[in-house]
Design a protein around this nucleic acid. Structure first.
Length: 286
DNA sequence: AAATTCATCAACCGCGAGTAT
DNA sequence: CATACTCGCGGTTGATGAATT
Protein backbone atom coordinates (compact mmCIF):
# COMPACT_ATOMS: atom_id res chain seq x y z
CA UNK A 1 0.00 0.00 0.00
CA UNK A 2 2.68 2.41 0.89
CA UNK A 3 4.39 1.55 -2.32
CA UNK A 4 2.16 3.65 -4.39
CA UNK A 5 4.58 3.79 -7.20
CA UNK A 6 5.39 0.14 -7.09
CA UNK A 7 7.10 -1.13 -10.15
CA UNK A 8 4.78 -1.97 -12.95
CA UNK A 9 4.60 -5.54 -13.99
CA UNK A 10 5.56 -6.51 -17.48
CA UNK A 11 5.54 -9.60 -19.54
CA UNK A 12 2.98 -12.33 -19.89
CA UNK A 13 -0.26 -12.05 -18.04
CA UNK A 14 -1.27 -14.59 -15.47
CA UNK A 15 -4.70 -16.13 -15.18
CA UNK A 16 -5.33 -14.14 -12.05
CA UNK A 17 -4.51 -10.91 -13.76
CA UNK A 18 -6.77 -11.79 -16.63
CA UNK A 19 -9.63 -12.52 -14.31
CA UNK A 20 -9.08 -9.33 -12.47
CA UNK A 21 -8.96 -7.31 -15.62
CA UNK A 22 -12.06 -8.91 -17.04
CA UNK A 23 -13.89 -8.28 -13.84
CA UNK A 24 -13.02 -4.63 -13.78
CA UNK A 25 -13.68 -4.07 -17.42
CA UNK A 26 -17.07 -5.51 -16.86
CA UNK A 27 -17.58 -3.10 -14.07
CA UNK A 28 -16.26 0.00 -15.63
CA UNK A 29 -16.33 -0.53 -19.30
CA UNK A 30 -13.67 -0.35 -21.90
CA UNK A 31 -12.18 2.97 -21.24
CA UNK A 32 -10.30 5.03 -18.74
CA UNK A 33 -7.65 2.41 -18.77
CA UNK A 34 -5.34 4.18 -16.42
CA UNK A 35 -8.01 4.48 -13.85
CA UNK A 36 -9.03 0.94 -14.40
CA UNK A 37 -5.48 -0.24 -14.02
CA UNK A 38 -5.21 1.60 -10.76
CA UNK A 39 -8.36 0.56 -9.07
CA UNK A 40 -8.08 -3.00 -10.18
CA UNK A 41 -4.91 -3.37 -8.23
CA UNK A 42 -3.17 -4.77 -11.24
CA UNK A 43 0.35 -3.55 -11.36
CA UNK A 44 0.03 -2.87 -15.02
CA UNK A 45 -0.15 0.28 -17.02
CA UNK A 46 -3.46 1.28 -18.45
CA UNK A 47 -1.95 0.82 -21.81
CA UNK A 48 -1.01 -2.71 -21.05
CA UNK A 49 -4.48 -3.44 -19.72
CA UNK A 50 -6.08 -2.08 -22.81
CA UNK A 51 -3.85 -4.10 -25.04
CA UNK A 52 -4.52 -7.27 -23.15
CA UNK A 53 -8.21 -6.68 -23.34
CA UNK A 54 -8.32 -5.71 -26.95
CA UNK A 55 -6.05 -8.40 -28.22
CA UNK A 56 -6.86 -11.26 -25.99
CA UNK A 57 -9.66 -10.97 -23.50
CA UNK A 58 -12.29 -9.25 -25.52
CA UNK A 59 -15.26 -11.56 -25.83
CA UNK A 60 -15.81 -10.75 -29.45
CA UNK A 61 -12.52 -12.13 -30.57
CA UNK A 62 -12.32 -14.90 -33.06
CA UNK A 63 -9.43 -17.21 -32.52
CA UNK A 64 -7.83 -19.66 -34.79
CA UNK A 65 -6.11 -19.47 -38.06
CA UNK A 66 -6.85 -16.93 -40.69
CA UNK A 67 -8.99 -18.60 -43.26
CA UNK A 68 -8.38 -18.49 -46.98
CA UNK A 69 -11.31 -16.20 -47.29
CA UNK A 70 -9.97 -13.86 -44.71
CA UNK A 71 -6.59 -13.95 -46.30
CA UNK A 72 -8.04 -12.90 -49.59
CA UNK A 73 -9.79 -10.08 -47.88
CA UNK A 74 -6.68 -8.98 -46.10
CA UNK A 75 -4.77 -8.88 -49.33
CA UNK A 76 -7.47 -6.79 -50.90
CA UNK A 77 -7.68 -4.43 -48.01
CA UNK A 78 -3.96 -4.13 -47.71
CA UNK A 79 -3.78 -3.15 -51.34
CA UNK A 80 -6.34 -0.54 -50.55
CA UNK A 81 -5.11 0.85 -47.27
CA UNK A 82 -1.58 -0.34 -46.90
CA UNK A 83 -0.51 -1.19 -43.41
CA UNK A 84 -3.34 0.49 -41.65
CA UNK A 85 -4.02 -2.59 -39.64
CA UNK A 86 -6.70 -1.28 -37.42
CA UNK A 87 -8.60 -0.15 -40.45
CA UNK A 88 -8.24 -3.53 -42.03
CA UNK A 89 -9.18 -5.24 -38.82
CA UNK A 90 -12.46 -3.41 -38.78
CA UNK A 91 -13.46 -5.24 -41.87
CA UNK A 92 -12.58 -8.57 -40.40
CA UNK A 93 -14.88 -9.21 -37.52
CA UNK A 94 -13.25 -10.72 -34.52
CA UNK A 95 -9.77 -10.17 -35.76
CA UNK A 96 -7.44 -7.71 -34.14
CA UNK A 97 -5.03 -5.42 -35.84
CA UNK A 98 -2.24 -7.19 -34.06
CA UNK A 99 -3.35 -10.52 -35.38
CA UNK A 100 -3.60 -9.29 -38.91
CA UNK A 101 -0.31 -7.54 -38.64
CA UNK A 102 1.36 -10.72 -37.47
CA UNK A 103 -0.29 -12.71 -40.17
CA UNK A 104 0.84 -10.30 -42.80
CA UNK A 105 4.38 -10.31 -41.56
CA UNK A 106 4.55 -14.05 -41.60
CA UNK A 107 3.02 -14.18 -45.00
CA UNK A 108 5.39 -11.64 -46.50
CA UNK A 109 8.33 -13.30 -44.96
CA UNK A 110 7.29 -16.64 -46.27
CA UNK A 111 6.79 -15.28 -49.73
CA UNK A 112 10.14 -13.56 -49.72
CA UNK A 113 11.76 -16.74 -48.56
CA UNK A 114 10.15 -18.74 -51.29
CA UNK A 115 11.26 -16.26 -53.88
CA UNK A 116 14.74 -16.26 -52.57
CA UNK A 117 14.85 -19.98 -52.65
CA UNK A 118 13.55 -20.06 -56.15
CA UNK A 119 16.11 -17.51 -57.18
CA UNK A 120 18.84 -19.33 -55.32
CA UNK A 121 17.81 -22.53 -56.99
CA UNK A 122 18.01 -20.94 -60.37
CA UNK A 123 21.27 -19.27 -59.49
CA UNK A 124 22.70 -22.47 -58.18
CA UNK A 125 21.75 -24.22 -61.34
CA UNK A 126 23.50 -21.55 -63.29
CA UNK A 127 26.60 -20.97 -61.25
CA UNK A 128 26.62 -24.16 -59.28
CA UNK A 129 28.61 -22.64 -56.44
CA UNK A 130 29.69 -19.31 -55.11
CA UNK A 131 26.98 -17.42 -53.34
CA UNK A 132 25.19 -19.51 -50.78
CA UNK A 133 26.74 -17.74 -47.85
CA UNK A 134 26.30 -14.28 -49.19
CA UNK A 135 22.72 -14.75 -50.13
CA UNK A 136 21.73 -16.19 -46.82
CA UNK A 137 23.44 -13.47 -44.94
CA UNK A 138 21.47 -10.96 -46.89
CA UNK A 139 18.44 -12.29 -45.20
CA UNK A 140 19.21 -10.41 -42.10
CA UNK A 141 20.11 -7.24 -43.83
CA UNK A 142 17.62 -6.89 -46.56
CA UNK A 143 14.02 -5.93 -46.56
CA UNK A 144 12.38 -8.87 -44.95
CA UNK A 145 14.43 -9.26 -41.93
CA UNK A 146 13.42 -12.34 -40.08
CA UNK A 147 12.67 -11.41 -36.54
CA UNK A 148 13.98 -14.67 -35.29
CA UNK A 149 17.32 -14.45 -36.86
CA UNK A 150 19.13 -17.66 -37.54
CA UNK A 151 20.89 -18.16 -34.28
CA UNK A 152 18.72 -16.34 -31.85
CA UNK A 153 15.77 -18.59 -31.45
CA UNK A 154 17.42 -21.73 -30.30
CA UNK A 155 18.90 -20.09 -27.29
CA UNK A 156 15.63 -19.80 -25.53
CA UNK A 157 15.72 -23.03 -23.53
CA UNK A 158 13.05 -24.27 -21.26
CA UNK A 159 11.55 -21.77 -18.96
CA UNK A 160 8.07 -23.06 -18.62
CA UNK A 161 7.47 -19.37 -18.28
CA UNK A 162 3.90 -18.47 -17.79
CA UNK A 163 2.63 -21.95 -17.96
CA UNK A 164 -0.22 -20.21 -16.37
CA UNK A 165 -2.06 -18.92 -19.32
CA UNK A 166 -1.93 -22.10 -21.23
CA UNK A 167 -5.50 -22.80 -20.42
CA UNK A 168 -6.62 -19.50 -21.72
CA UNK A 169 -4.44 -19.51 -24.67
CA UNK A 170 -6.61 -21.78 -26.65
CA UNK A 171 -10.04 -20.67 -27.49
CA UNK A 172 -11.98 -17.55 -27.15
CA UNK A 173 -15.58 -17.41 -27.96
CA UNK A 174 -16.87 -14.52 -29.79
CA UNK A 175 -20.02 -13.06 -30.98
CA UNK A 176 -20.06 -9.44 -30.37
CA UNK A 177 -17.59 -6.68 -30.40
CA UNK A 178 -16.96 -3.99 -27.99
CA UNK A 179 -15.58 -0.78 -29.18
CA UNK A 180 -15.65 -0.90 -32.87
CA UNK A 181 -17.30 2.07 -34.43
CA UNK A 182 -18.06 0.61 -37.77
CA UNK A 183 -19.61 -2.39 -36.28
CA UNK A 184 -22.29 -2.48 -38.86
CA UNK A 185 -20.02 -4.38 -41.09
CA UNK A 186 -18.71 -6.34 -38.22
CA UNK A 187 -21.96 -7.72 -37.12
CA UNK A 188 -22.95 -8.80 -40.51
CA UNK A 189 -20.21 -11.31 -40.62
CA UNK A 190 -19.46 -12.07 -37.04
CA UNK A 191 -22.80 -13.37 -35.98
CA UNK A 192 -25.53 -14.01 -38.35
CA UNK A 193 -27.67 -14.82 -35.39
CA UNK A 194 -29.59 -12.18 -33.60
CA UNK A 195 -27.95 -9.99 -31.05
CA UNK A 196 -27.25 -11.82 -27.85
CA UNK A 197 -29.33 -10.91 -24.90
CA UNK A 198 -26.46 -10.84 -22.52
CA UNK A 199 -22.88 -10.65 -23.22
CA UNK A 200 -21.01 -13.65 -22.02
CA UNK A 201 -23.64 -15.86 -20.65
CA UNK A 202 -24.77 -16.82 -24.05
CA UNK A 203 -22.02 -16.63 -26.46
CA UNK A 204 -22.42 -20.10 -27.69
CA UNK A 205 -23.17 -19.37 -31.29
CA UNK A 206 -19.96 -19.40 -33.19
CA UNK A 207 -18.97 -20.71 -36.53
CA UNK A 208 -17.44 -23.91 -35.45
CA UNK A 209 -14.63 -23.84 -37.95
CA UNK A 210 -12.92 -21.15 -35.99
CA UNK A 211 -13.28 -22.33 -32.51
CA UNK A 212 -11.61 -25.26 -31.02
CA UNK A 213 -11.98 -24.91 -27.32
CA UNK A 214 -14.08 -22.13 -26.06
CA UNK A 215 -15.07 -23.94 -22.96
CA UNK A 216 -12.22 -22.65 -20.92
CA UNK A 217 -12.95 -19.03 -21.47
CA UNK A 218 -16.62 -19.60 -21.04
CA UNK A 219 -15.82 -21.10 -17.77
CA UNK A 220 -13.73 -18.17 -16.82
CA UNK A 221 -16.43 -15.76 -17.76
CA UNK A 222 -18.96 -17.72 -15.86
CA UNK A 223 -16.81 -17.94 -12.82
CA UNK A 224 -16.20 -14.27 -12.89
CA UNK A 225 -19.83 -13.57 -13.32
CA UNK A 226 -20.62 -15.78 -10.41
CA UNK A 227 -18.00 -14.16 -8.27
CA UNK A 228 -19.29 -10.75 -9.12
CA UNK A 229 -22.75 -11.78 -8.30
CA UNK A 230 -21.71 -13.19 -5.01
CA UNK A 231 -19.66 -10.21 -4.09
CA UNK A 232 -22.11 -7.59 -5.05
CA UNK A 233 -25.36 -9.37 -5.08
CA UNK A 234 -26.97 -6.88 -7.34
CA UNK A 235 -24.87 -6.45 -10.38
CA UNK A 236 -25.81 -9.48 -12.28
CA UNK A 237 -27.29 -8.69 -15.56
CA UNK A 238 -24.49 -7.51 -17.64
CA UNK A 239 -26.11 -6.17 -20.67
CA UNK A 240 -24.56 -5.43 -23.92
CA UNK A 241 -25.76 -2.22 -25.38
CA UNK A 242 -26.16 -1.86 -29.06
CA UNK A 243 -23.46 0.72 -29.14
CA UNK A 244 -21.02 -1.76 -27.83
CA UNK A 245 -20.69 -0.74 -24.25
CA UNK A 246 -21.44 -2.58 -21.15
CA UNK A 247 -24.04 -1.46 -18.82
CA UNK A 248 -25.52 -2.99 -15.80
CA UNK A 249 -28.97 -3.28 -14.57
CA UNK A 250 -29.93 -3.72 -11.02
CA UNK A 251 -31.22 -7.20 -10.88
CA UNK A 252 -31.73 -7.43 -7.22
CA UNK A 253 -31.98 -4.99 -4.44
CA UNK A 254 -29.89 -1.87 -4.46
CA UNK A 255 -26.39 -2.12 -3.15
CA UNK A 256 -25.70 -1.91 0.51
CA UNK A 257 -23.54 1.12 0.06
CA UNK A 258 -24.19 3.00 -3.08
CA UNK A 259 -21.54 2.23 -5.62
CA UNK A 260 -19.68 4.79 -7.59
CA UNK A 261 -21.46 4.06 -10.78
CA UNK A 262 -24.96 4.73 -11.78
CA UNK A 263 -27.41 2.36 -13.16
CA UNK A 264 -28.34 3.17 -16.61
CA UNK A 265 -31.79 3.46 -17.82
CA UNK A 266 -31.83 4.54 -21.37
CA UNK A 267 -28.34 5.55 -22.11
CA UNK A 268 -25.34 3.81 -20.86
CA UNK A 269 -23.55 6.28 -18.74
CA UNK A 270 -21.55 3.88 -16.76
CA UNK A 271 -20.58 5.29 -13.48
CA UNK A 272 -19.66 8.41 -11.79
CA UNK A 273 -16.06 9.18 -12.31
CA UNK A 274 -16.05 11.85 -9.69
CA UNK A 275 -16.25 9.10 -7.17
CA UNK A 276 -13.02 7.51 -8.07
CA UNK A 277 -11.64 8.27 -4.70
CA UNK A 278 -14.55 6.66 -3.05
CA UNK A 279 -13.93 3.54 -4.95
CA UNK A 280 -10.28 3.61 -4.20
CA UNK A 281 -10.99 3.83 -0.52
CA UNK A 282 -13.40 1.02 -0.79
CA UNK A 283 -10.75 -1.13 -2.33
CA UNK A 284 -8.13 -0.12 0.13
CA UNK A 285 -10.26 -0.89 3.08
CA UNK A 286 -11.20 -4.29 1.85
C1' DA B 1 16.67 -38.70 -29.64
C1' DA B 2 18.73 -34.34 -29.85
C1' DA B 3 19.63 -30.13 -32.11
C1' DT B 4 18.26 -26.62 -35.11
C1' DT B 5 15.17 -23.85 -37.76
C1' DC B 6 10.74 -21.90 -38.67
C1' DA B 7 6.17 -20.01 -37.70
C1' DT B 8 3.12 -17.97 -34.68
C1' DC B 9 1.57 -15.35 -30.98
C1' DA B 10 1.76 -12.00 -27.25
C1' DA B 11 3.52 -7.95 -25.50
C1' DC B 12 6.16 -3.51 -25.34
C1' DC B 13 7.46 1.03 -27.12
C1' DG B 14 7.14 5.48 -29.18
C1' DC B 15 4.38 8.64 -31.46
C1' DG B 16 0.44 11.23 -32.99
C1' DA B 17 -4.46 12.51 -32.73
C1' DG B 18 -8.31 13.70 -30.17
C1' DT B 19 -10.46 15.49 -26.04
C1' DA B 20 -10.88 17.68 -21.72
C1' DT B 21 -9.45 21.22 -18.56
C1' DC C 1 -5.74 29.29 -26.71
C1' DA C 2 -2.48 26.44 -24.44
C1' DT C 3 -1.54 22.51 -21.87
C1' DA C 4 -2.27 17.98 -20.06
C1' DC C 5 -4.13 13.65 -20.45
C1' DT C 6 -5.96 9.52 -22.65
C1' DC C 7 -6.41 6.53 -26.27
C1' DG C 8 -5.26 4.12 -30.34
C1' DC C 9 -2.03 2.82 -33.98
C1' DG C 10 1.90 0.91 -36.23
C1' DG C 11 6.39 -1.01 -35.71
C1' DT C 12 9.28 -4.09 -33.33
C1' DT C 13 10.91 -7.66 -30.28
C1' DG C 14 10.91 -11.84 -27.48
C1' DA C 15 9.17 -16.35 -26.20
C1' DT C 16 7.32 -20.73 -27.28
C1' DG C 17 5.78 -24.76 -29.79
C1' DA C 18 6.01 -27.37 -34.08
C1' DA C 19 8.45 -29.16 -37.81
C1' DT C 20 12.56 -30.64 -39.87
C1' DT C 21 17.21 -32.39 -40.16
Amino acid sequence: MSTAAAAMRKGPWTDEEDEQLVRFVRLFGERRWDFLAKVSGLRRTGKSCRLRWVNYLHPGLRRGRITADEERRIVELHAQWGSRWSRIARSLPGRTDNEIKNFWRTRTRKKALEERRAAAGAGAAATATEEPASSSSSVTTSECRPGSSPTSGAATTASSSSGSSSSLREGRCGDDDGDCDDDAELEEASTPTAAPATKHEQQQPQPQEYYDGCSTMDQLWNEIAAADAAAMSYVVDACWSGAGHYYYSAAAEPPPASPPWEYCGSDFSLWRIDDQEYYKKMLDSS
